[in-house]
Design a protein around this nucleic acid. Structure first.
Lengths: 218, 218
DNA sequence: AAGTTTTTATTGAACGTTCAATTAACAAAA
DNA sequence: TTTTGTTAATTGAACGTTCAATAAAAACTT
């Protein structure tokens, strides 16, 4: 009879080893030999369980997306209050979880992000995730503002989250998670209050103020 | 004497061809053969003018950064008004120029962004550019708010710009430049007015408002 | 013993680099 | 004007390396 229950163990091992290899050497130099070495197994095992390197890469990205999805939905499910603001903060917190977990996850995410533009299977996974974030945010903002404004608020907040995360990943110092969450919180609050003020004042001038007038050039 | 003055022509040709190749097939499949084919020359010429593939890649990234630098500084130099708000908008406009120029530039930028974490020469170039953007923004915000707040405003706006650009690059639809600029403008204005309101009210509570009913923190 | 898991050795394709040969431009010599 | 010499520019085939995939042997579990 066979050796039993090895498959899920090996799959988790190899996915973890893939992230470590990408963290260590980048996607271009994450060879099957290096990945296998990280997992403490031989190279042939990768084709055995994933059909090949591409299969392992896709499984790794799918794992990362699944983890992010869980991080967000768990936080939203655990909310005591059901107001928009709390849900927005839960989404923000969940999205910055991926950085907290480990540097290897962040680097792997970024590597896949870049290569998803040219690898169809990765692109599909990427787009599903992107749409979910926008969709979640838009549905929340929709509770207290018209659709068009909700769309812009969602696009802006999603961009800010991704931008903060991206800069934190590239920064050798690492991401300052507390600061990133604070900036994202403030932006979300700004979007909420901005609409409240507009609907209260009922003015038709939603555009910008004139903060200061200066001269010199930096 | 030989055919003279070919070097600057070939260098420009090959850098252009590199971006096209990366746009077409991604950094991983941007082989010297493909790049040479795009430029209409033979493979050997790359080593002749750039010392090798790595040299060409570095030169390509340097070109992109130089173009961005020019786009920003030209817009700032051409400003009629010298107030903070105008300068911020010039920086924003300049940063979204790189997307307008062409898709190949955006894709190349993103590819280098991801690989800069593992290639030291690219990382150095990347960091110089990052610091310049933050430094520019921080100096501008510094004109009308304390240093700590200016730092946060700069970090937030830089993240929003990069996030909008990143999402636009990944989106097959392409970046909606007008919308991206509008969202960045609004965020910049929010940072400016936020401080004005705080300094006018002279309250010691610079934190968030209360848009909807809530209690706990996510 | 029987069958699955795992290793090891091998294969063929693809890559970047190199370099001897060729081409083209120009100046000097005839 | 024509010829010859010189040299940068350019080619492309050959080379050595590296990689993922494969298959057959080995090890291990039931």
């Amino acid at each position: 009879m066979p050796k039993v229950g090895m498959e899920p163990i090996r799959r988790r091992q190899l996915i973890q080893a893939t992230m470590q290899a990408i963290d260590e050497a980048g996607l271009a130099d994450a060879t099957v030999a290096r990945i296998a070495r990280h997992a403490g197994v031989s190279t042939g095992i990768i084709s055995h369980y994933f059909g090949g390197k591409d299969g392992l890469m896709e499984a790794t990205m799918r794992q990362i997306l699944t983890d992010l999805r869980s991080a967000v939905s768990e936080r939203r499910a655990a909310l005591a209050d059901d107001d928009v603001r709390s849900h927005l903060r839960a989404v923000i917190d969940g999205n910055f979880d991926r950085s907290q977990v480990s540097q290897s996850v962040s680097k792997t995410w970024l590597a896949f992000w870049a290569s998803s533009m040219h690898r169809i299977p990765l692109e599909r996974l990427q787009r599903v995730n992107d749409r979910r974030l926008i969709s979640n945010l838009c549905a929340l903002f929709r509770r207290c503002m018209p659709l068009n404004e909700a769309r812009d608020s969602a696009a802006g907040l999603a961009a800010l989250i991704d931008g903060l995360w991206l800069r934190g990943t590239l920064d050798p110092t690492g991401l300052d998670v507390e600061r990133a969450r604070r900036l994202a919180y403030e932006y979300a609050d700004y979007q909420l209050t901005r609409h409240m003020a507009a609907s209260l004042n009922a003015t038709d001038s939603p555009t910008s103020p004139e903060p200061s007038k200066e001269r010199t050039h930096g």
